[in-house]
Every structure is written in structure tokens, then in C-alpha cells.
Amino acid sequence: MKTWPFLIALLMLLILWWQAGQDPEKNASTPHAAPAGPLVSLPPADSPPDLTVVSPPPAGSAGESLPRARVYRLLADGERFSLEAVDEVQGDFRQPRAQPSGSGVLSCRLVSDTSGLLASTLVAAPVTQCNVLDPVTGGAVTYVRPTPQVMQIRLPRVEGADRLEIHADASTAEPAGPSRLLASIPLGAK
């Protein structure tokens, strides 16, 4: 008799599991992506974030052939940047196109110990100020404050990356002036 609660619990789990598999909306239309299965264990809400753990790559046969990349999670405080975590991801990433540069755009570069450029990407700098006239409140409202923000940069996996450099691609004049080095972050420990 003592085994009944366990069997009932197991039966309920099996039913839940079967229902999850039957949900047509769940991941139904992204066959190329085959992300990490519909259910993934993550830290509970009241536990400290495990920032340096490497996420599992997407599972499944389709996912195995997708390219891998590294993401660098930074804490941006104005023009100061510190590295929070390095993660590995796998996905259907697009080929870069000629994204417009200019004020508000950061050039993020992986460089070797001899300062050779290994990879680079342009990303939008985190917005640090946003005030807007708001008809709901009837006045100006601040919707971004100049406080530290987490941002993430995705770059190809390359061998020999010694540091991550963050450059401001912008100037207040046009055309944009030469880039300005904001941060040079060693990657040795990551």
C-alpha cells in the first residue's frame, strides 16, 4: 500500500510529460533550431545566479549542425564595462550585413596577444537616458536611468583571443570620427 502514492505521482508525471509532447504550439515550427528541449532546469528564483555556467548547446540532430558562438555578458556602467560571464551558444546565426555605424554603436573586438583583430561585431550601446512625453501621465517620464545595465555580445568562437576590446564607434561629428577605446578586458581566465 505504501507504494500507491509513489505510483500515482509517477502516473501524473507521465501524463504531464505526454501532454507536453502533444502541445502543437511548443517549438512546433522551428525545425532548424531544435532548441534545448521544451523544458530546461534553471536556478530557482531565490538562489544566486550562476553566471559562469556554460549553457548546454541545443540538443537534437538539427541542433548539432548549427554553428556555435561565444557570448560575453558585460556590466555596462556608462562607458565602463566589466565582464560578468562568458557563455557558449549554438544557433542559426545570421551572416553579418553592413549595419550602419555611428553614435550609439559599440564596436566589440576580439584581439590576440599581439593585438591582431580576430573577430568583431557592432552592437547598440545600452541606452543610458530616456525621457519622453507621456500622455498617460500627462508629463515627461523617465524610462531609462543611467544605472549599470547588463548587455551581451555575441562573437564567433576563435582561437587565441586574448582580450575583448570595446570601442565607441561614434563621435558627435559626422562622419563618425576614429573609434575610441572604452575598455580592454582580459579573457585569460574566461
Binding site: 533550431a33 532548441p35 557563455d87 549554438q90 544557433g91 546565426f93 551581451q152
Partner: peptide, 14 residues
């Protein structure tokens, strides 16, 4: 914010 990025890295890294 870190949790949001971790979730997206897992499910929709694109």
C-alpha cells in the same frame, strides 16, 4: 537581466 540572457541563450540565442 543575467537570468533573462541565460534563458535566451538556452532557447533563442538568435
Amino acid at each position: 537581466q543575467n537570468r533573462a540572457y541565460a534563458l535566451m541563450n538556452t532557447h533563442v540565442p538568435e
